[in-house]
Computed example of a mutant assay.
Amino acid sequence: MATQAELVGDLKALRKGRGLFRADVADRVGHTLRELCGVTERDDPGEVRYRIGRRVARLAADLPDDLRVAVLAAFGMLPAARHPLYQDRVGWLADHIDREPRTARRRIDEGIHQLAQLACTPLRAGVHPRSGWHTAETRVIAMLDRAVPEVLEHHRVVAAQEVTELDLPVPPGRDVAVAYGGTLRAGKLTLATPLRAGEAHEFALRTRLPVRPRQLVHVPGRRCDFLELRVRFDRGRQPRQVSRLPGDAAPVPVDGAGEVRLTFADLSRGFTYGARWD
């Protein structure tokens, strides 16, 4: 994991001009910030903006309210402060807190430093040096509208050190195949080429289900930044109710296409996330 000072430098460079909304954002993101957010050279500006914005917003949620507002304003992430120049966003913040612009700048600097501290703590970094990699994003869809139900899993992982294979606990008896991204043998996904520290890799798995399930769950065994679950039901077998896991009293609506979609962020290891229906 890169140092706090390097991350502070990358964040201060990004706040210039239109901040996160500059057209050349993909060219303006430093290596340390790329590593933190799981950005790769293949990502287009929209993807880069989405990944960085999501990560910064999550970290900023743990800042004091005044520093959170200062940081989000600095990057143009607050609609009211989405001005084309950094100095204009500083001016907006100064008016917002009823202070001089130099005080607003100090608030922004303090917020960026604390943001970097949060990002670089072992707990927030979430990767033990020997664990090798973490999941930046997992998207799962259960297709129950076909003769043999299937589940597709798309994973995006980021290496913390050189990685040649990924441990994937596959339940015994499951019909699991790799759609792309490696070779699966005995619960390990062997990569075509090794990943270096900071590099991202995507792969997908397909599982054929022997029976129609009553739930779709995911239990992360290591750090997972984002999870999206989708279930596509047979239009002739719509469930009476879909519930979110962990428990939520409000039912999850099924849309006009017979689908439900759930998202989770900053997942806790060993906890169950998903949906149950009847």
Results as ranks from 00 to 15, higher is better:
Arg106Ser: 12
Gly258Cys: 09
Gly17His: 13
Gly17Met: 05
Ala160Phe: 05
Asp10Val: 08
Leu229Gly: 03
Leu267Lys: 06
Leu191Cys: 11
Arg42Glu: 14
Leu115Ile: 03
Val242Thr: 01
Phe75Met: 05
Val158Asp: 03
Ala74Ser: 15
Ala250Gln: 10
Cys37Val: 13
Phe233Arg: 02
Pro101His: 07
Thr272Arg: 15
Leu7Met: 06
Arg214Leu: 04
Leu33Gln: 10
Leu118Met: 04
Met1His: 09
Leu267Ile: 06
Ala104Ile: 08
Arg174Thr: 13
Leu195Ser: 07
Pro194Glu: 10
Val260Gly: 00
Arg22Gln: 15
Ala80Asp: 12
Val217Leu: 11
Pro169Thr: 00
Val127Ile: 15
Glu6Met: 05
Leu195Tyr: 07
Gln238Ile: 11
Ile141Val: 15
Pro101Gly: 03
Val178Ser: 06
Leu168Thr: 10
Arg22Pro: 00
Gly111Met: 07
Met77Trp: 04
Leu209Thr: 01
Arg232Ile: 06
Ala147Val: 13
Ala70Ser: 13
Trp133Thr: 09
Ile52Asp: 03
Arg156Trp: 11
Leu14His: 03
Pro220Trp: 06
Val69Gln: 13
Ala26Cys: 03
Ala265Glu: 14
Leu123Val: 13
Val127Thr: 12
Arg42Gly: 08
Asp234Lys: 02
Gln87Gly: 01
Phe75Pro: 08
Thr164Gly: 08
Phe271Cys: 11
Val158Leu: 10
